[in-house]
Design a binder for these strands. Structure first.
Lengths: 347, 347
DNA sequence: TTGAAAGCGCTAACAC
DNA sequence: GTGTTAGCGCTTTCAA
């Protein structure tokens, strides 16, 4: 029988008081050798698990988690992150965890720095942040560490970073997923990787995806593909791509490394091109529209909502239950086509 | 300021005792009109949310959830379900929820009936079951309903079923996902749907997938595909398929509606056929092996682990927090290729 | 009909 | 060092 033991039971068995048992369990010292031995002896024979509920009932302190992320109004990608954060926030409300969201402008490092200061002032018990800017993020993390505040990063993995953990995706592998999709869909031919630069903060992201993409093909014995790379500013994309496609009529695939693949789809639609396989990222409304129209063949879901949710959950459980924060958590790389997109959006 | 109100606060504000407030909150009657009015007046002005933790601390009754599923040793598909159940079980251990797993033999209806009786004897507070056999499942559900025990079904959606809810996948849509995968990979040609019958319990499953698969192509303006269907017993598959492929050299795709696609891959490997696109279901070890070797092109993940986890979670939260059990929960239809399979297995 | 009081399991302050 | 005690928020019993 696996009876549920309580502190009271242990105290009774060991012939000491609850207080002593508590001191032993929490290694708070001030316990005689004999008492210590008696209690540990009991603890070894039974399977004692503290009642986490009761533990937290007493703890009427409220925990404060601060999340630092880009303003979804400036970059829509972050909207779903915000939803994930709000959901997680609700989950932990009964445990007296409050989550405050601070938004910065992803176009300016100054905005990040400034809002990081704002976060510091709130004196949070834990911080979740999107380390868009390498240097500034590093400094911010050091600030928190000095104050002994646990920090978790998400979405952008910047190594070597000194945060307590990271939640996100393996971007190299994500490039390989795209590569394999092209391999099965077009089998051979010319594929162009398009990096759409809106702001510098994405550079690392895009580069890793390209690296995974290329090495996938390079590691094959026979490589039937020709790979090119194109860097474009969002506002010049239409003109440049139109021109590019005219000069590269052998183009069979386009791999867009950011969430702006709808911009490319718009161009293809305008040019009435239907025979190019387009693989991009993220379930933005506009991307989904073009996925359904067939202009985008596959989207890889970076699952921002789940990332953020997991980040908050991980920190909350660390605060409440003293759970360890795992160093690296990689989320699945979801492959989305027109037929399975619905469930990913509604969930 | 959104202060956290407690029953004590309300009692103080209303000038009554905690007991009375509690009676009002739980509509247990035995409250005078005046007291009732005073308390409800207060409740309307403030935002009171009971502390779920404290609520459950008192509840030293343990909840018992019973899960009825096929023996994973007989059909390996259910192994990951079991893991999901055990995980969820751990999550709710602190809340005094115990989960017992009862396994039946999916090859015999009698085994289901017999084990259902075993479950009944345990007098559980809630039941999660895989309704493999329509008629017998229906009877079982009625039994539980008569005893006022909430029942959730998972994995197999059998309509019209009278359970309180269902967790699983949209199988029609799942067939459409496969169809779209073939459309992008082979563009045109002959595809054969293979139903591998091990036992009758899968019939409905396979039929729905086929239906979704076919209607996807039928709804297109121009249909470049020829679709055939093949029913095979597992032990006769190799011989029959070898023969079939000899007589149907135009075969470009094979869609396997069960988790046994590795059997087909074995045959293709033996015949040294590499140019047939194979789409199957589920991340069984053997399937993953052939996914990595390239004999299987895509797998659709039915996510048994998540299904079962969600089922147990949903029931546990119903018992603990009186959460409603949602009528239908559809999980995402994950598309898996050799490059993203890893994250799905380890998570 | 109502308030007072005990107690769920755990923690922490406080006497001894 | 150690036991006792009060209290976290809520439920439930019991007297009044």
């Amino acid at each position: 029988m696996n009876k549920k033991y309580t502190i009271k039971d242990i105290a009774l068995l060991a012939g000491v008081s609850k207080g002593t048992v508590d001191r032993v369990l929490h290694k708070r010292g001030k316990v005689s050798d004999t008492a210590l031995k008696k209690v540990t002896a009991i603890l070894e024979t039974i399977d004692y698990k503290p009642n986490l509920i009761a533990q937290n009932l007493k703890n009427n302190k409220t925990y404060h988690i601060c999340v630092l992320l880009p303003d979804p109004n400036i970059d829509n990608y972050w909207q779903r992150c915000k939803i994930g954060i709000l959901n997680a926030s609700q989950d932990f409300e009964p445990f007296n965890v409050i989550v405050s969201i601070i938004e910065f402008n992803p176009q300016f490092t100054e905005s990040f720095v400034e809002n990081h200061q704002k976060a510091l002032k709130q004196n949070p018990d834990a911080v979740l942040l999107a380390p868009l800017f390498y240097k500034e993020a590093q400094t911010a993390i050091t600030d928190y560490k000095n104050l002994n505040i646990p920090v978790l990063t998400f979405n952008n993995q910047v190594t070597p970073i000194t945060a307590d953990g990271f939640v996100g995706q393996d971007l190299i592998q994500s490039g390989r997923v795209a590569a394999r999709l092209f391999e099965t869909t077009i089998r051979s031919g010319h594929i162009t990787i398009i990096h759409i630069n809106e702001d510098i903060s994405n550079a690392k992201h895009m580069q890793e995806k390209e690296s995974g993409f290329r090495t996938y093909f390079e590691s094959k014995e026979e490589n039937a593909f020709k790979i090119s790379t194109l860097h474009v500013e969002a506002d010049k994309l239409h003109a440049l791509l139109t021109n590019y496609l005219e000069n590269n009529t052998d183009t069979k695939g386009l791999f867009i490394t950011t969430s702006k693949s709808y911009l490319v789809a718009e161009t293809l639609e305008a040019l009435r091109i239907n025979d190019i396989t387009l693989v991009g990222y993220d379930l933005l409304d506009l991307n989904v529209k073009y996925l359904n129209s067939g202009h985008i063949t596959y989207l890889i879901n970076q699952n921002p909502k789940h990332q953020a949710h997991l980040g908050v959950t991980s920190l909350a459980e660390h605060l409440i239950y003293q759970n360890k924060i795992s160093k690296t958590t990689y989320l699945p790389l979801d492959i989305i086509n027109s037929e399975n997109v619905k469930q990913y959006i509604t969930n």
